[in-house]
Amino acid sequence: MLTQAIFGYLSFVIVVTSILVVTRKNAVHSVLWMLILFIHIAALFLFLNAEFLAAIQIIIYAGAMLVLYLFVVMLLNLKQEERIPRFTSLWPLGLLTATGLLLVLGLTAKTIIKGPPYIYTVDFVNEIGHLSLVGQVLYTEYLFPFEVLSVVLLVAIVGAIVLAKKKLRS
């Protein structure tokens, strides 16, 4: 009963704030609603026994990325943008597409067949600890994707500087 109440609260807030995120006119308001959304998604991750993911959701999304978005909104002067209508003229078509997508996804959700459970039961994860188990899987089974990911982040660092720099000296 309590778990259902908590899940109901979290899902209600997640849906409402995500609607607010895509409909606010001011981009700063959108980003701030996004902060509340991310905190509730992190709480949902805690609810699903994923402490490490809840922590990086808060640190990376809420801490780093939203600050990046806020900085960009602050750097660009968007005063005149608030006077134009917020949706494109063809917004009913977009709403129709989104509703159709929801319908199709909803129909497929009924046919989900769960596979056989794997070894990481809740008790096993709680005994060893979520972070150390994630670390074990990440550094053994997924070592190569992890290394590729470091290159992706390096490209992001260098690329962001190269793109946003005023002029490259030749």
Partner: peptide, 20 residues
Amino acid sequence: VFTIGVFGFLTRRNIIIMFI
């Protein structure tokens, strides 16, 4: 939530909100 994201991406004019 995914559908709301699709709706926002398709209909908003502001490119920052499309990223969001």
